[in-house]
């Protein structure tokens, strides 16, 4: 008990430093910083404001989807359907825009698509007691098929300007021209982080990933909780998809193919434990940015294009191994 009261005394600076080092995000933050330094030494173009904002813009939709993925993984599941949801939501937004809906309504339609797919995932996982891997693998395929079916396989172009601006404009902040997607990414990160760390729902999500039986016995409606978790993931993936469509100016049914793996990797590189119960949104954000910096840096430094995917894979494994090693030593 004495040790306990001591741990609640005033934080000393070494104590604060230790707490920072022990945080899961610390490792990935160090890697991101190291990569940034190496790349800015190797290339003259890397450490310019424009390029950094480009990195943020390019990683924004992956990052936003990764926030939802982080929630699902923390709750002890996995969501493979995020890439398809991104494509489908962007497509629904584009189609409703061309049908003459205003941009806000069209965006809502896109988000509603994500809610729908996420809700279906949640119902099958909780009520149907099916493994999340199987359920979301099914919706991955189903949502992609729907996207092809809605368009007949052709991309949707000629989107209205006010919608496209959302993805392509910058907001002047002082000396900087900050891209809107970057702002959106930070806003979503803040909201999701508040949800996870400051609300009862967030606490239940962490508890669910730690011990589902105990949470059920504690009188929490686990079915409703799971449906909420997958719906959140769906809506965040949809938000990423809409943003991606606005940025690219075109909604293709083939968009975001294979993104689910990038998104899961971003979350896990950011320290979200695949066993559930551990991880933060900020970790996922750092993970997504690290992956983008890596891609960007490999291109800028003239690394052979065909080998880039391999290099990224190696670094993902290294980051996760480092996280494991740290967990074993704390």
């Amino acid at each position: 008990m004495r040790a306990l009261s001591a741990s609640h005394s005033k934080p000393s600076w070494p104590g604060v430093w230790q707490a920072v080092v022990r945080r899961q995000e610390f490792g990935i933050a160090v890697i991101l910083l190291a990569l940034t330094i190496i790349l800015s030494l190797q290339t003259s173009t890397f450490l310019t404001g424009t390029n950094l904002f480009n990195v943020m813009r390019a990683s924004s939709w992956i990052a936003i989807a990764a926030f939802g993925e982080a929630i699902v993984i923390i709750a002890g599941g996995i969501d493979l359907s995020v890439g398809s949801v991104m494509a489908l939501a962007g497509l629904v937004s584009a189609l409703t825009l061309l049908a003459g809906w205003g941009a806000p309504l069209a965006i809502c339609a896109g988000l509603a698509t994500g809610v729908a797919v996420g809700f279906i995932n949640g119902v099958f996982v909780s009520r149907g007691k099916l493994p999340s891997f199987i359920v979301t693998l099914g919706t991955l395929s189903a949502a992609r098929g729907l996207a092809f079916g809605l368009t007949g396989g052709a991309p949707v172009r000629n989107l209205p300007d006010n919608f496209v601006h959302l993805g392509q404009s910058n907001l002047p902040l002082g000396n900087w021209e900050v891209p809107l997607p970057a702002i959106a990414m930070l806003a979503f990160a803040g909201l999701t982080a508040l949800l996870l760390s400051r609300t009862v729902l967030g606490g239940h999500i962490y508890a669910l990933g730690s011990d589902e039986t105990a949470v059920w016995l504690a009188g929490i409606n686990v079915e409703r909780l799971k449906i909420t978790v997958y719906t959140l993931s769906g809506v965040l993936a949809a938000a990423g998809g809409v943003l991606m469509t606005a940025r690219l100016g075109v909604a293709a049914p083939t968009a975001a193919v294979g993104y689910e793996l990038d998104i899961i990797a971003a979350a896990m590189v950011g320290g979200v434990s695949w066993l559930g119960g551990k991880g933060t949104v900020w970790g996922a954000l750092l993970g997504a940015m690290t992956m983008q910096v890596l891609r960007n840096g490999l291109v800028l430094s003239g690394f052979p294009t065909y080998w880039q995917a391999t290099a990224i894979g190696v670094i993902i494994i290294a980051a996760i191994a480092l996280d494991r090693w740290r967990a074993g030593h704390s």
């Binding site: 009862v200 606490g203 239940h204 962490y206 508890a207 730690s210 011990d211 039986t213 105990a214 949470v215 016995l217 504690a218 009188g219 929490i220 119960g277």
Partner: peptide, 21 residues
Amino acid sequence: HQEPRLVKRLDVIHNIFLGQE
């Protein structure tokens, strides 16, 4: 319960109010 099931990773205060915050 005869053998209480707590969420091991959470602290006592979170366990006491889990689901009834």
